[in-house]
Amino acid sequence: MVNATGRLAPSPSGRLHIGHARTFLVAYWRARSQGAPVVLRIEDLDAGRCSPEHVDGVLEDLQWLGLEWDGPWRLQSDGLQAIRARAHALLERGLAYPCVCTRKEVALAQSAPHGDEGPRYPGTCRGRYASMETARAASGREPALRLVVPPGPIEFVDQLHGARAIDVQAQVGDFPLLTRAGEPSYQLAVVVDDARDGIGEVVRGGDLLEVTARQVLLQQLLGLATPRHLHVPLVVDAQGVRLAKRSAGLTLAELRARGIAAERLVAAVAASCGMAPRRAGAPRDYVDLFRLEQLSSTPQAFDSEAVSFYPA
């Protein structure tokens, strides 16, 4: 028996747009078409970008779309203690170390240009301090906690993009588990929470394909099962530009304000997943039609004009 429990994991840093809608619909269809439950977890750990009013907005958007989830939804921040404890357990096993470097120092240590990931951490503090205490005492700073990342590629399989091998050490180096403020990194939080929720299949946006290797590594070190992965290609606008959260005109709230029925958007997304659109179709009406093989691995162009062609 395969565990296909899926999840919807929106982060409340703004209103949801068409791209999110497509990812969440696919996640929902994928789990339900395998007869598995879907849980809703709102990933609100990034305190700088997430806010309580956005939580309400996200819930409103998901409900408007007609998505259903099993059990009560929960906030990721509710499980903060368990997530931090995992980082400390890695420290105790010698697989993590305290780091007192600032962002600036990391950037300076790295002369080569770097992408939007930020610079690769060269491992300055690795083996420097035996405990958080000594790091604090020696530097006068609150230490962060970084993972000892082994060299060499980490392998995983994506159901749409095939086998991947990513050298995490070469890409980002020893990535952080806890920030200096004690906040868990996304990688750690998502791994602990997926295990806690018993997730068997992770369906999410294609922009997260590359960082999956870091999560797979963490799962292996923590003795947790790696769920199966499905990275849904991003949605681009008519000009081929990737939808970011800020892109105006394509948020679900705006579609709703313009009187576009949710069923139209669901039908448009269903069509982009190779299903025949239906009249007045809620997400649940497409569960039986969904086939993974029909899913394209290339970016999907969408705009509000296109959406309005589909039946309501």
Partner: peptide, 17 residues
């Protein structure tokens, strides 16, 4: 473990439910 889909890992959640 197989029936639970490899959920052996659920066995060692620190302080979780």
């Amino acid at each position: 473990l197989i029936a639970l889909g490899g959920a052996a890992t659920k066995l060692d959640l620190l302080g979780a439910d």
